[in-house]
Amino acid sequence: MIKLTVNGRAHEADVEGEMPLLWVLRDVLDIKGPKFGCGIAQCGACTVLLDGAPVRSCSVPVAAIAGKKVTTVEGLEVNGHLHPVQQAWLDHEVPQCGYCQGGQMLTAVALLRHNPKPSDADIDAAMTNICRCGTYARIRTAVHAAAASSQSKRA
């Protein structure tokens, strides 16, 4: 039995320790926000936050996350309020097919946490998730917008 906390809720999963976190989330816990894109840590569709840091859950064995907190895209909203990153994504109409966007937003959340005012180059370096719909330009704009709105809230 493996214990894990996802989006603030404690879960137990009766799975092998080497099962990738992605499939534990999707197939065992029915948390479908993380997506499968490649299975080899190349695309970022499966990104979740582990104690606030982005990881590619397709390549993380569930046994390796003992005691850590998992956040998926479903966990970004707080009390029905969109996270500033979600709001920026909405305002700047980032998604097209939407498939990659959970991973993109989580990566952006982590970036802004340790770099509240990233430059374009910082964004390009941190946001290595693939978006085949080519929403990169709007992602850049939205990250800047989220940074600005978080700062104005803090001020």
Partner: peptide, 19 residues
């Protein structure tokens, strides 16, 4: 106008066949 469908994509509620 911004998209109607984005709200579900942004909260992880998009429903794809794999889901």
């Amino acid at each position: 106008v911004t998209r109607q469908e984005d709200a579900r994509f942004l909260s992880g509620r998009g429903r794809y066949v794999g889901d």
